[in-house]
Design a protein around this nucleic acid. Structure first.
Lengths: 220, 220
DNA sequence: TCATTAAATACATACTAATGGTATGTATAG
DNA sequence: CTATACATACCATTAGTATGTATTTAATGA
């Protein structure tokens, strides 16, 4: 294969192949050669021309998959005509969550947390960084400022809710539960959040139901 | 080195070296050769005589470290003259938690969750299996049976509390926070638990303070 | 505007060091 | 004598590198 006039296409192909393999086989379970084999005709030299390490491929693939979702949330946060409390509910409404879930479902991450340990670690870290500090916490603080939320420990509440939402409600790294049990989890989380002043809204139940549907349809 | 009369000693040496390396360098960051190099004179043949894979070494080392702690908890659970509510409080009292923390602190796991992703994954899975299903849930159910606990969603409450306790309160895979913020987390968790009918007791705060001291003394 | 050339880029090929694991040999305990 | 506890020597795979080659782009000059 000669030189491509549009190298971004090559990069995109590499990241597409990589993300799917990393999700299905895990990070350590995926070799560079596995990725190369999915890029017909291309060789390892091409991959290492565009990325300097496997680590970098992983991060780039992950960031790329996350970008539209982060953008979407940013849009929700940006709207100026809503109170903090309203934005909070919106964050856990189906329209905010389901697109993310559909992405994950397409990737079919391994239900075994040990096989998916790297993804799990990133979700874990993300629960503090992006989800909590960069997304949930500002909304809560906005709500406190405008009087629509009464929360005495905003940072802690944000972290706890993010963690539970990302690693407990989302069935990414665990075998799929029954719909009823997922709904019970959602209700439990809502109750716990309410205890620290956060009203996640009734839509959480609908969101959870839709998550289950998407996941179940994806064949778990 | 000739044949050892007491091969259990060899096994113990291997597991000791392995656990420390796995904690500090992570699973993938630790090679069999790294382990061998700490067993002066011994060779890879010895290691692979006693264990059939790196995976098995890891699991054995982990189980070995966890055994006394699991045993201790089992003892707490076994006592027949306490209500479920009392046992619940005991589970989060310093005497139950601190020994575990001291073990972890000795191991100095990497604060980077990605480097420690395998340990994180095991803690994650353990939060469902051992902590929740095997330890917390039976206590809650006992409390419900004897009337000392009123909880409408015992399974969900157990999972949520376990997850938060293992992955949020314990500073295993994150840089150590200030003592105040750790205490705020503990209080937040207690509040959330109370909302679903679980009284973790006031001792949670003392437990958290002691955890911080241990961790801080260990040089974080 | 267009041909010519130089440089940078997009790959392919061939290789290396390290790794998990195996096959096999040998000495010692029971 | 036999089974076990090791040591030695080896293998296939892997992430990563060094280098070679073709093509695109940029610069130049008329």
């Amino acid at each position: 294969m000669g030189r491509n006039k549009y190298p971004e296409e090559t990069v995109a192909k590499i990241l597409d192949a990589a993300l799917e393999l990393f999700c299905v086989q895990g990070y350590e379970g995926t070799s560079i050669q596995d990725i190369v084999d999915r890029l017909d005709g291309m060789t390892k030299g091409a991959v290492y021309h565009h990325f300097k390490s496997k680590e970098e491929i992983f991060n780039a693939a992950f960031d790329r998959a996350m970008a539209p979702i982060v953008e979407r949330r940013r849009a929700t946060l940006g709207a100026g005509n809503m109170t903090g409390a309203q934005k909070l509910k919106r964050l856990y409404a189906p329209e905010s969550v389901v697109p993310q879930i559909e992405l994950w479902a397409r990737m079919h991450p391994a239900a075994d947390p040990v096989k998916s340990s790297r993804l799990l670690a990133m979700q874990y870290q993300g629960s503090f960084d992006e989800s909590a500090d960069g997304c949930l916490l500002p909304v809560i603080e906005e709500g406190i400022a405008d009087g629509s939320i009464a929360c005495k420990c905003p940072r802690e509440a944000a972290e706890a809710v993010s963690l539970l939402a990302n690693l407990w409600l989302l069935p990414l790294f665990r075998p799929l539960e029954t719909k009823d049990r997922m709904l019970a989890r959602a209700q439990c989380l809502a109750q716990m959040a309410a205890a620290v002043g956060l009203d996640l809204g009734n839509e959480v139940l609908q969101t959870t139901a839709q998550i289950w549907d998407v996941w179940n349809r994806a064949g778990w």
